[in-house]
Structures are given as structure tokens and as C-alpha cells.
Computed example of a mutant assay.
Amino acid sequence: MRTIIMTAMLLALGSGTTSVAAVRIADAEVQTSLTHGRVEGPFELHSKVYPGTARRYWVYVPAGYDPSKPPNLLLFQDGQRAVNPEGSLKLPAVLDTLIEQKAIPQTLGVFVTPGNVSVRYPDTLGMQNPDHRPEEYDALSDAYARMTLDELLPAVARRWRFSADPKRRAIGGTSSGAIAAWTVAWRHPDAFGNVISFIGSYTSIGLKLGPDGTPLAYGGDTYPGLIRKSAIRPLRVFLQDGRNDLDNEHGNWFLANQQMLKALEWANAHADAEKHAGPRYDINHAWTEGTHSDADGGSILPDVLRWIWRDQQPGR
């Protein structure tokens, strides 16, 4: 039985920041559901935004799905791992359990892989990363968001309806999948109002230098500065990272995630001090002892989803 114990509950009035209260989540919690949704797929998507790439996606359709009552939407990156019943995330089982408990509303899940440069998505990849992942996930451009909003979600919507309300839509991922999720929501808060970020790669993976050392493209380590100097987006954000995460030529992952949290907190505090009207970031975080692994995020995932949709009526 895996247990994660986190910090005591804090509510920082005016900052919009909370930390999770002494949460103990056992793997067994997501194995007790009696009512099962179905996982459809994999489907293959050939992108015009990323020509020459192929990607796969799966769709979790909750039990009792009613197209006349469009459900919430959860879009998760690295879909091959998100749907893996032997993996750390086990998202279909988590959704089964939480929906049956009426802990979260009816939710359609979409789990998408990065692209692979090939005519067809290789059957042999298994849980491995497709070869176009860094170009898509770690770039700060709008390309991945355009693929998501203009290609992937319309393909899903041809068969299944889901809410158009950004407050009822969440996008998430782990590692580079987390920064990809953040970039989509940061650029398009009108499409996604909630972000789940586990072991996020807010580091310099995407940094590209010219022959003279001039940056040609920036990496995710730029985000804390962008957050501090940009208008606040109406986003609810959950950050998780472990103190034993990576430290390499791209950066220090745990420090990078702490910088993200500090930037979001500062943006709220500054807006309050200046008496600015408008939204504030709704922030929650969990610092664990883990490494660069999905394990800790997977262990707290049920409570993260409860927190994301805590103000919605169960079963809506």
C-alpha cells in the first residue's frame, strides 16, 4: 500500500493558495468501483499542425453518459501511460471510482500521446515516448494548443459531447506533459480553466541557441517571469513535485516547480496590493519526497480531481 502524507491545511486569504491536508491515498481506493465506464480506442490522429506525425488517443466514456447532458472534460497528456492499468495514474479506474462516489461530476476523459514522426503510430512503442514529444510538449509556442483545440477535440466531439465551459474542463500531464498542459491553458483560458501539473518540466528543455549563443527559442524556465509580468488568467492550478526530482543540464525540477508556485502567489498578492479587479489564480500544491516519477502524482490524483471540481454539484 502506497501512502503519501503531505503538509497540514493552510488557507492563505488573499493569495488563493492552499496546500493539501494530511492526505493518505491508498492504491486500493481506485479499485473498488462497481460501475465501470468504457475506454474507446486507440484512435489515430494525423496532424496538419505537425505534418508527418501520427498520434494515438483514447476516450473514457463514463457509465451513464448522456449526450443531452454534456459531461466535464479531462484531457491528459502521455495518454499511453494515463490509460495503462498497471501504471501509476490508472485514470480510467480513478474516474470510475470518483464518479460512482459522486465525488466529481460526470467526466469524459481524453488521453493523448505525443506525435511520432511516422506514417502510422508504431505498435511497438508501448509506454515509451514518441519521438516528437520535446518539439510539442516543451515548446512555448501556440502550436500544441492549436493541434489540441483545432484537431484533437473536434475529432473527439464528432462522437462524444462534452462541456464547453472552461471551469468544467481540466488539462493535465506529468513531466513535459505537465508543461504542455500549462501552455495550452495559459494561452487559452477560455478553453481550459483547470490545470493538473505533476513533476512539471518548467526547465530549459525547449531552449535553442544560435551559433553565437543567442536564444532562438525559450524554455519553460521562462514561465515564472512571464507569470509575474503578464495579466492573471482565470485558472485553477495544482502543482506537485518531489524533492528528489531531476537536477541536470536543463535545470532543477523541484526548484523550477517552486518558482512556478512563487510566481503565481506573487501575481495574486501584487494584484491584491494594487487593488486590481479581475481574476486571481486558484492554486494548490503538494511537495513530496519522490523522484521524477508519476508515482506520487498518481497517489494523490483522486484528491486532486476532487479539489479541481470541488465547487460543482456531484453528478452534474
Rank of each mutant, 00 (worst) to 15 (best):
Q259E: 14
D247T: 08
L239V: 11
M6G: 09
D131Y: 12
W287Q: 02
T3H: 10
W253L: 07
V49P: 03
K275M: 09
F76M: 10
E135A: 15
S118D: 10
A22K: 10
L108I: 04
V61Q: 04
V23Y: 03
G177W: 01
S118W: 06
R310F: 09
R56K: 15
E40C: 11
S197R: 03
R306L: 07
P51D: 13
Y50D: 04
S163F: 04
L74H: 03
I4R: 01
I199P: 00
P105K: 04
A63K: 14
L149Y: 03
A273I: 07
Y65E: 04
A8M: 05
R168F: 02
I5V: 12
S293E: 13
A180C: 12
L140F: 03
L301S: 08
P62V: 06
P70W: 03
S293Q: 12
T113K: 04
S163T: 12
N257D: 09
G172C: 10
F192G: 04
G177V: 00
P70Y: 01
D150A: 12
A103F: 08
T174V: 02
S141D: 15
I300E: 06
E274Y: 05
E289R: 14
Y57A: 07
P314A: 13
T53Q: 12
P134I: 09
R168A: 00
G210P: 10
T97E: 13
L246V: 04
P215D: 11
Q31F: 11
A63M: 07
W287I: 06
P166H: 05
Q101T: 07
A12E: 13
M147P: 02
V23A: 10
L209I: 09
V94G: 01
Q77R: 10
R158G: 10
G251M: 02
V59W: 09
T53E: 00
E289Q: 12
G225A: 11
M127C: 05
S201Q: 02
S299K: 03
A12W: 02
P279I: 08
I99D: 02
G206W: 00
M260Y: 01
I179D: 02
S47G: 07
V195T: 00
D96L: 00
L73D: 08
A155Y: 07
G315W: 14
V83D: 06
M260D: 01
R243D: 05
R168T: 05
W287Y: 15
Y223N: 02
A145Q: 01
L246E: 10
V94M: 13
A185G: 01
